[in-house]
């Protein structure tokens, strides 16, 4: 499973990445977490609000820092 965190590297993006990591660990899911900071790539997902979370190529949430619990539900 591949999780991508889209965002310029602001505080919220880092928080979201950390929550994703925790969620994956808690669920025991094997996954790779990648931070996408390049604006061209971010826009290619059709996203206008950051941070956004993309799981296996699908945009799951935009403009919000999801909690660990919320991410667990997505995995």
């Amino acid at each position: 499973m591949k999780i991508q965190i889209l965002g310029s590297g602001c505080q919220n993006c880092m928080k979201l990445a950390k929550n994703a990591e925790e969620a994956a660990k808690a669920k025991g899911t094997e996954c790779e977490i990648v931070k996408v900071t390049d604006i061209k790539e971010i826009m290619s997902y059709g996203v206008m609000q950051t941070p956004a979370i993309v799981i296996d190529g699908k945009v799951k949430s935009v403009g919000r820092v999801l909690s660990v619990e919320e991410i667990k539900k997505l995995l």
Binding site: I39, I42, M43, V47, M48, Q49, T50, G63
Partner: peptide, 17 residues
């Protein structure tokens, strides 16, 4: 529309695009 200055760049680009 919800606005946060952290999203100003993708919003701007999205509109122009």
């Amino acid at each position: 529309t919800p606005f946060c200055s952290c999203s100003a760049v993708p919003m701007f680009i999205g509109f122009i695009e």
